[in-house]
Amino acid sequence: MVGIWTDITFYLCAAIAVFSGWRVFRTDSMVRASFLLLISFLAVGVIMLLLAAVYLGTALFFMMAVEMMVMALFMVMFMMNPAGLNPMNMVHQPWVAALLGFAVFTGLSLVAVYGEFPANPAPADLDPVRSLGRELLGDSMLVFESAGIALLATMIGTVVLSSHRGRYGPANEGSEPPGLDPGGPPAKSAAQKQQQREEQKEQEEDKQDHDQ
């Protein structure tokens, strides 16, 4: 009885995970795309819960929710048209990519079907959280601490690369944007354009005064 329901839930979640993963690249709305990816992650998280990986399943929920939220923010920041109001198609080499994707899927599925894996399920009385905690404090201590170093490097890297404001003033001070066409004059920033417009206006007003 319980087994049937587990199977039904598994197939449902698997279908949701794959389908929403596919829709990510087919929807026009970028914000929807990032939340579709979140749905794919959530479905995989439920499958993990079914596999008795309680901690990894629930932790996947919150890790991925944060990541996809930030993903959606960056979609809005970088996409001309984050809601996909006009349909668009920003792909290159779609057929090669589709072919390669399918080839990888087929290869891995063949391995899954014909490969021989030991049937060695986790013991039913295993406490996944506790065993993981002991592992972190025991044999894998080095892995754990070096993950800390890697994360520190990431944090410093993101701050250096992304922060607009350095400690000694704006990060892009003295730099100028590249030309709109190769080798052309630098593109003007909005502030510069505004300044130019105001100067022009003043000149025109001066001229009018002069004429009068």
Binding site: F35, V54, Y55, A59, F61, A65, M68, P128
Partner: peptide
Amino acid sequence: DLVTGMVLWGAVEVLATVVIFL
């Protein structure tokens, strides 16, 4: 009675942000 009820509550807090944004 989930073994990781606390983690699940954390997930609820974060997913709430997603839903409010939506």
